[in-house]
């Protein structure tokens, strides 16, 4: 055990882990963070706090993670390479750890072009792989990226993302291997809708024995409507939505689409549970956090183990 992270303990116990996420509000409204997190509290082992997701300014992931921590819950602080250089990253990591935040996710970040400040200069001082390596060295070697010793090293359980659906597909297992080499502990994948392709990717992962070196949490997103499915298919980069998903949602009335979407999410979890190397689920219910408990329960992932 490297850290005090609840997620690490769950994963070490061999149980399937469950995480979800909370997008911080676009304003100084701490109650919003509390409301969203309260919906999730009994049903997940960690709550991802997104970092200016889709390059839109929001309450900082650090601040929102502190609010969640102070509720006695377990935030997973996301950090993107787009908005901070290595100095800012390391000071935020130390600061977060000082508040008891012990789990984080290292990401490149969506390009600023997509957000509400497309004129901003992206930082990209280091990339997500280098960030993983930096956080691991801060923890294991107690040194800053620049080489100096840390007095009070932050012991972070280190996560990263993987998108099995972006191309070139053949690189996607190799890139995971690279993140493992850099020192990542767990992976949360992009939302999985194309299960066949996910299975193919996982086969590549297990063939190389990478599943023994990293915990993979499969990304699950319930579709609220056929409109959302079409939007994600056409507008969200790196998303793979098979036509069968859209057809199935089209097959039911508009009122029934949310329920059908949840049913599909639960079915996906049931199928993915059988895939070797999957150690948990990351449920991203976009602006639909209240449905996460239902999904967790219906998928047989409730109650959550005590560690």
């Amino acid at each position: 055990m490297n850290t005090e992270s609840r997620l690490e303990k769950i994963l070490a116990s061999g149980e399937l882990a469950v995480t979800s996420e909370c997008g911080p509000p676009r304003g100084a409204r701490p109650e919003k963070v509390k409301e969203k997190s309260a919906l999730l509290k009994d049903h997940v082992d960690g709550i991802n706090v997104t970092d200016n997701q889709t390059a839109m300014v929001r309450m900082s992931s650090f601040a929102a993670a502190v609010i969640i921590k102070q509720m006695g819950l377990d935030p997973i602080m996301q950090m993107v390479a787009r908005d901070r250089n290595r100095l800012a990253m390391q000071s935020d990591i130390i600061g977060a750890y000082a508040f008891g935040i012990n789990t984080m996710l290292c990401l490149s970040g969506d390009h600023a072009k997509f957000g509400d400040h497309p004129m901003a200069q992206g930082v990209f001082d280091i990339d997500s792989v280098q960030m993983i390596n930096m956080v691991r060295r801060m923890r294991d070697e107690e040194t800053f990226q620049g080489g100096a010793k840390i007095d009070g090293a932050p012991k972070m359980f280190i996560g990263a993302a993987a998108n099995p659906f972006a191309d070139p597909f053949e690189l996607r297992v190799m890139r995971l291997a690279k993140k493992i080499k850099a020192g990542v502990d767990f992976i949360q994948t992009q939302c999985i809708f194309n299960l066949d392709k996910f299975e193919e990717w996982m086969k590549g992962v297990t063939d190389r024995g990478l599943d023994e070196k990293v915990h993979i949490l499969a990304g699950i997103t319930p579709m609220k409507s056929v409109g959302m499915a079409r939007y994600m298919k056409n507008k969200v980069p790196g998303m793979d939505i098979p036509d069968s998903v859209i057809k199935r949602l089209e097959g039911v009335s508009k009122e029934q689409q949310p329920e059908e979407g949840i049913k599909m999410a639960v079915e996906s979890i049931e199928r993915i549970k059988e895939i070797k190397g999957v150690h948990g689920f990351h449920i991203m219910a976009i602006e639909w956090e209240e449905k996460v408990p239902q999904i967790v329960e219906q998928a047989g992932l409730y109650p959550r183990p005590k560690v």
Binding site: A81, A162, A166, D167, K178
Partner: peptide, 15 residues
Amino acid sequence: SKHLLNGPCGGTSNG
């Protein structure tokens, strides 16, 4: 676009 030295990121679409 992100100056990644260990790319590609997850946003690649049709190459």
